[in-house]
Amino acid sequence: MAGFFSQLKQGLVKTRQNFVDKVGELLTGRRKIDEELYEALEEALIRSDAGVNTAMELVEKLRREVKNRKLTEAQELREVLQELVADLLGAGKPLNLAEPGPTVILVVGVNGVGKTTTIGKLANYFRREGKRVILAAGDTFRAAAIDQLEIWGERSGAEVVKQKEGADPAAVAFDAIQAAKSRQADVVLMDTAGRLHNKVNLMEELRKVKRVITREIPAAPHEVLLVLDATTGQNAIQQAKLFRETAGVTGIVLTKLDGTAKGGVVLGIQGEVRIPVKWIGIGEGMDDLRPFVPQDFAAALFSGLDEAEG
């Protein structure tokens, strides 16, 4: 895990330069706490894609803490800001796994966010934990999506349930659950077509898939995971709001955190959408998708300031 923390720190370098380093400059370059400083901190948060509302909320909480703790030196704000960020991120929320299985996880999101790749990496994670995994090729609109899922199945050692291109995704969901029951699988990961929020028929199809799953296993789907691309910044927050309303999203997988200056979007998602980020991706490798640990994220984000001060 120490290795992953180092990787997380490395992955957040651009976000740190975009936000935390600016905060460091602001706090180091002045002594007193004044209105100009608060405005500059708010602007730094917004530029990191934390979102306007979240930035305003964090700065307002910072004002209260300064007053409550009777702080006077700008340098004292760094630790308080890190506390507030960790607070906003909340406690880590693991995936809801059914005991006994199978656990059914529906994976949704628009095209191009890395949905199928995320499913493959989740399959790899569960397989390494000794679980039997079935992948359901529910994106039947694109033959390439089915092929891609089969490749991930081979790489991770998971079984793939599919039908021909253009088949009813709800039928694929039914087949996958029947296969999971008969083969005593632990986890079913269901791929879906990339959906745009204004495509009513696609959203209705997603509801149909969920109805079929719930009919076969009343408590399922146990998770509806929305895959978001961190590099899209504020667009990711808008997607989260739209999918929350239409798909009953229970958790978020945030991919491509490495190499983007927009990692502050994690704060915006938590502050404005209130859906827990459950997994994050910080690389291309099979093991570069991991459960989200909020305290680790906050520590990695502010580590540049720690090292500068040390």
Results as ranks from 00 to 15, higher is better:
Y38Q: 13
Y38G: 10
E42H: 05
E43N: 04
A44V: 12
R47W: 15
D49L: 04
A50K: 02
A50S: 14
E57R: 14
E57G: 07
L58W: 03
V59Q: 13
V59F: 08
K61D: 07
L62D: 02
R63M: 09
R63L: 04
R64Y: 00
R64G: 01
R64C: 00
E65T: 08
E65K: 14
V66D: 05
K67Y: 07
K70A: 14
T72L: 15
E76V: 11
L77F: 04
E79K: 15
V80T: 13
V80I: 15
L81W: 06
L81M: 15
E83L: 09
E83I: 09
E83D: 14
L84C: 09
V85E: 03
D87K: 15
L89Q: 04
L89G: 05
P94M: 01
P94N: 03
L95V: 13
N96S: 10
A98S: 11
G101Y: 13
P102R: 04
T103H: 02
V104W: 02
V104I: 13
V104K: 03
I105F: 01
V107D: 00
V107M: 05
V108W: 04
V108K: 02
G109N: 05
V110P: 00
N111E: 08
T118W: 11
T118D: 02
I119T: 04
I119M: 02
L122T: 02
A123W: 01
A123K: 09
A123L: 05
A123Q: 10
N124Q: 13
Y125N: 02
F126A: 00
F126Q: 00
R128F: 13
E129D: 15
E129Y: 08
E129A: 15
E129H: 14
G130Q: 11
V133G: 00
I134R: 00
A136C: 01
A137Y: 01
A137G: 06
F141T: 07
R142N: 11
R142S: 11
A144C: 09
D147A: 14
Q148R: 14
Q148F: 09
Q148C: 12
I151A: 11
W152F: 08
W152Y: 07
G153S: 03
G153E: 00
R155Q: 08
R155I: 05
S156Y: 03
G157S: 12
E159V: 04
K162D: 00
E165N: 03
G166M: 07
A167R: 08
A167Q: 07
